[in-house]
Design a protein around this nucleic acid. Structure first.
Ligand SMILES: [Mn+2]
Ligand SMILES: [Mn+2]
Ligand SMILES: [Zn+2]
Ligand SMILES: [Zn+2]
Lengths: 147, 147
DNA sequence: TCATGTATTTAGAATAAGTCTAAGTTGAGA
DNA sequence: TCTCAACTTAGACTTATTCTAAATACATGA
């Protein structure tokens, strides 16, 4: 890029950072992968594969195939760039927030919010020593108070 | 039933109790439903629909169809007799333990163990008051210590 | 008893998420 | 420029689940 125009760094910056992120994880930053990673990095909506496909297909000059979306999501997951989130039967959601965190599902709207790990920190230690806990995932269901 | 033979009350008792359970929840206890509910009540393995079908189809004099297994599982779920458990993408597991509890997935064996709710009791209160928590589900991943 | 209506079950078709295949495209390096 | 491996593509395939339409069972009332 090395762009002289500094008025809108946002897009270029995001592309650079998605690209850098992929490079840093050993994933070749193809246009398809960059555009998908970039989309996941800038949303907090925990989209499904289909939602990624619709959101992103217009951003490429060529057709984006479903196979590439799934390939890319699996590649990014294996590289630790994104995580899968299971909140309901039958569909996997994707999350570029790879820090240890949890989720709150608003049962009215379906919205899925991130809950920082430190809010529920203690859970990993609660089981007896017959369990060696590698990790855990908390899914809260409820409503957001409208304050 | 009102059986004079007391040497093996187990089977008859279980059938009676599955039957009573269904009746108490307003579900007509057809042979298919009783046999499926009974199987779920006596296992702690959190089976999938296919596992229920294989486990149970021999127990009926007639063929048991996939559609009936799914219909029954959904009926039992809607009646509060069983719960769905999501531990992995793409398949739903079923659990006749409808008490509030959590799960431990042994990453070596795939075994899914119940964790009583009182072990992680406090979690429901940890979020701020902008969240009205109706319920939550913790999924632990790890290994069972072989003591 | 018989008729009839409703609930249930059945086999197989349909759907939908995800994976696979086989054929093209790309692009880094010889 | 040539080559080859990596990547992408369209569409076929698989698998879990739901739907459909026809058969069965069963309760109720004439
Ligand atoms: Mn996956
Ligand atoms: Mn379901
Ligand atoms: Zn998240
Ligand atoms: Zn359980």
């Amino acid at each position: 890029m090395t762009d002289h125009n500094t008025t809108d760094k946002t897009t270029a910056d995001k592309i650079v950072s998605a690209e850098q992120l992929l490079l840093s994880r050993g994933v070749k930053p193809t246009p398809q992968r960059v555009v998908i990673a970039d989309y996941l990095l800038q949303t907090d909506s925990h989209p499904t594969a289909d939602e990624v496909l619709s959101a992103v297909s217009g951003a490429l000059p060529v057709a984006l195939s479903r196979a590439t979306v799934y390939n890319t999501l699996n590649t990014l997951k294996d590289a630790g760039v994104i995580k899968e989130v299971l909140t309901e039967p039958g569909r996997v959601r994707y999350d570029a927030n790879v820090s240890h965190h949890h989720h709150f599902v608003d049962v009215k709207t379906g919205q899925i919010l991130d809950i920082p790990a430190d809010k529920v920190e203690a859970i990993g230690q609660l089981l007896g020593d017959q369990y060696k806990v590698h990790g855990f995932q908390v899914l809260f269901y409820g409503e957001l108070e409208q304050n």
